[in-house]
Computed example of a mutant assay.
Amino acid sequence: METTENLIIIGDRVLIKPKTESNQTKSGLYLPPGVKEKEEIQSGYVVKTGPGYAVSYDEMDEPWKMKEEKAKYIPLQVREGDLAIFLLKMAYEIVYQEEKYYIVPQSGILMLERDENILDEFLS
């Protein structure tokens, strides 16, 4: 798998590597390539997450007086390695180093499956 170390995810967004699934249905019917990708709901593994939701400053009445402070964030519920079920219409598809990924805001994720060892299995 290609490395994503150089990517910085912004805000409440999540980088998801789509789960590779067979084009065969449960009944044994083979679907043409791309049919599964057009479904409204997709699944994939969370590869990277953004820092979270930015918290507003208390002294916004005089923003020009703000010192060089680091922003504070409310962390995301999503963690790297989670299996995410997400809405495709809220996702942006990108290709990075010849690998397909989705960038999804946390609000576009419907459900997570968390297994502490799932990322190790996915990366191997």
Rank of each mutant, 00 (worst) to 15 (best):
E21P: 05
V78P: 04
L76W: 00
K19I: 05
E21L: 15
E116G: 03
Y57P: 04
M111I: 08
S124M: 08
E21V: 14
I109G: 02
R114T: 14
L29F: 14
D58A: 14
P63S: 06
Y73Q: 01
K67N: 11
M111E: 14
E113V: 13
V95G: 02
M66F: 10
M66E: 12
I74W: 03
M90Q: 13
E121P: 00
Y73W: 15
Y53G: 00
N23F: 08
K38Y: 04
D12R: 11
P18I: 07
K17G: 03
A84P: 00
Q97M: 10
Q97W: 05
E5Q: 13
K17A: 15
E116I: 12
L110I: 15
T20G: 07
T20Y: 07
I41E: 09
K36T: 09
E5M: 05
S56I: 06
S27R: 11
Y73T: 02
L15D: 00
R13D: 13
Y92H: 10
V14I: 15
K100V: 15
E40F: 08
Q97R: 15
I118G: 02
V78D: 00
I109E: 06
E68D: 15
V47C: 01
L112P: 07
Y92A: 08
P32T: 04
S124W: 04
T3N: 15
K72F: 01
M111V: 07
K72P: 01
Q97D: 13
E59V: 06
D61A: 13
E99W: 02
P75H: 06
G44P: 07
L15M: 01
E62A: 12
P51M: 05
I109A: 04
F86A: 06
T20E: 15
L31C: 07
P33H: 09
Q42F: 04
D61C: 03
K65E: 14
T25D: 05
P32R: 10
K70G: 08
G34W: 04
V35P: 00
K26N: 12
L119I: 13
G52I: 06
I94N: 04
Y101K: 07
T49L: 03
L15H: 01
